[in-house]
């Protein structure tokens, strides 16, 4: 009985030692990969940061209104944020590669999913960014047009347009991430919003004059007789 126990123990400790002996090199490899990965991710970050600075990305995001958001959340500038994101994504990627080297059952699958997920992540970030950009631009265009046409509640119009576009964008981003197939339904719901967006586009850019005259006639608080009092600007 004791002998059997000792045998089992030795066998087990052998097994453990063997396992450890087998595991240690992998761990070392993993650590090496993680360290190298950190370096590579850092290089990514630095390169991306300088590229974004050269491309004046901050100004663009300021136009998109992202900068104000970040400011409000006490976050660093958008290019800094983006390069940090890239750093982390890259490093996590390397960590995951390293972990997969450990040969833990089931990890490979998760790692593969992580890498499969990466393009979607970037695409949705991309969509989100330009969505914000568009939302800001069109809401401002609508605001200016509304103010200059003397429409009621220009801020509300502007806010509505901005919200609609952002909602639309987010839903599209989520869709891209594949996080919720059901958001498609939401997107369909937002088709109405898209219509509004289209209208805003039309009124803001395309038929500025027509649309404004139409709106003035339609919603303008002032009757025709007061147009005659309008001053010649030239």
């Amino acid at each position: 009985m004791w002998d059997k126990f000792v045998l089992e123990l030795t066998q087990a400790s052998h097994g453990i030692v063997e396992n450890i002996a087998r595991f240690l090199p992998r761990l070392l490899v993993m650590i090496v990969i993680v360290i190298i990965g950190w370096f590579i991710a850092w290089i990514f970050k630095v390169v991306l940061r300088s590229i974004l600075r050269l491309a004046k990305f901050d100004k663009l995001s300021q136009d998109a209104g992202a900068a104000q958001l970040l400011n409000r959340a006490a976050l660093p500038s958008s290019s800094e944020l983006l390069s940090r994101l890239v750093f982390w994504v890259a490093w996590i990627g390397f960590i995951l590669i390293g972990v997969s080297v450990l040969g833990i059952v089931g990890i490979e699958e998760h790692v593969a999913r992580f890498f499969g997920f990466l393009p979607q992540l970037f695409a949705s970030l991309f969509i989100l960014f330009f969505g914000l950009l568009a939302a800001s631009f069109f809401s401002r265009a609508a605001l200016l047009a509304a103010v200059n046409s003397d429409l009621p509640s220009p801020r509300l119009i502007s806010w509505t347009i901005r919200t609609l576009i952002i909602v639309f964008t987010i839903s599209m981003g989520l869709e891209e991430l594949g996080l919720g197939e059901h958001t498609v339904v939401v997107a369909f719901g937002i088709v109405f919003g898209a219509l509004m967006f289209g209208l805003a586009l039309a009124f803001g850019l395309g038929g500025q004059d027509l649309a404004r005259q139409f709106l003035q006639r339609r919603f303008g608080r002032h009757g025709k007789e007061e147009h005659e009092d309008e001053l010649s600007p030239l």
Partner: peptide, 22 residues
Amino acid sequence: IRVNRKRLHQMFVRGIVDLEPV
């Protein structure tokens, strides 16, 4: 020339208020 100054003023005030973010 008849000029609706009141409206000019109104539009100015509203413009300043509404366009503040811009």
